[in-house]
Design a protein around this nucleic acid. Sequence first.
DNA 1: AAACAATACGAACGATCGTACTATTTGTTT
DNA 2: AAACAAATAGTACGATCGTTCGTATTGTTT
Lengths: 205, 205
Amino acid sequence: MDQQVTDGRIRRGDQTRRVVLSKAVDVASVDGLDGLSIGRLAGELDISKSGLIAHFGTKEELQLATIRAARAIFVTTVVAPALETPPGSKRLRLLLEGWLAYSSDRRFPGGCFFARASHEYAARPGPIRDALAVIDEEWVRLIAETVAEAQEAGEIDPTVDPAQLAFDLSAFLDAANLRSLLGDDSVYDRAYRSMRDRIAAVSLS
Amino acid sequence: MDQQVTDGRIRRGDQTRRVVLSKAVDVASVDGLDGLSIGRLAGELDISKSGLIAHFGTKEELQLATIRAARAIFVTTVVAPALETPPGSKRLRLLLEGWLAYSSDRRFPGGCFFARASHEYAARPGPIRDALAVIDEEWVRLIAETVAEAQEAGEIDPTVDPAQLAFDLSAFLDAANLRSLLGDDSVYDRAYRSMRDRIAAVSLS
DNA sequence: AAACAATACGAACGATCGTACTATTTGTTT
DNA sequence: AAACAAATAGTACGATCGTTCGTATTGTTT
């Protein structure tokens, strides 16, 4: 029963998986999910290629596991803190500012993991693209729902289309992430200003 | 003198370069500049690896030439048609709508070449990233300058920061490009609406 | 026709890729 | 202590990578 928890063999395996995936998300955020070579990963972690891939089966399974690991980090870093605040415009603000920090603080060394990976696989059908499309859709929908909650709280003009506003706001975030990586140091201020003005224009209170 | 123009040997080489780069931009827009393997390219074009790479020297030179070729296509497809209209808000509209068509018509099979390539190399220092950063900066600046011209023409509120507006507009474009590739069919309408509303809010006439 | 120049080809190089298979080590159960 | 199970390692495979070298082909010049 609870041997699942205490079995040292499985614990050892779980620990290895965590270490591998922790390195994998960092590598992939810079060099992409294709740049995730098994040999390189094994070399950097000083473990054997065969021992590493045995945890995942195939490279594609490793890539999918890396996406899931990145999603968990994103939820912990950006989503969960915002959800601690009750629904409304304050939660919306926390969500957006949390994302800007997640990008500018380089939680992943290559900036937003999903911006990197989504562009890499957007035009390549398959399970990896599908997984990334779902996560992107989840993210935009979370913003839209948070907008809708702020409308219900009477803080945002109820005639505004939440999906449209969510599109704009997420677009500002992604643009800041990319252009920051390309060397534009002022772009996070730009994005913050655009978000603030865009929200202020539809705010009631 | 004009043997440069008529020399059949050089013309043959130029033709080969054009064929190679025409295929290279398409391949790279889907599989990235890293996915541009010399062997694959040679195989698809039915020429020899050695004959192909002889035109460029190294793979990195091939990648840089591919970026230049994509830039030329972009200028022809998006920029040049807009520049046929005199400066002002109409030119701005043509520029933005031209970009949306460039993306939605899949001028490159993988959507916007530069969105794909920029995200691929944004976190990887070197000449490729530098070239892409310059092109991105040129594009955003072109939008900003066009905005400024519309201000001088009295069509847009002169108190608006052109760079800030250009940031917003380019962000809408990039978001539409990515999410369209990820399967969202409504996103070009979304982007068009956001651009129209954003511009309308600062328009004078 | 002969000499020359540019392009294209074919073969091979060392390196790395993902994967499969067989030990070996580590931890648990009886 | 013996039997078992899971994780890890070692080795090798065919394929592909970018690059180099020598040669053949194609076009121009004299």
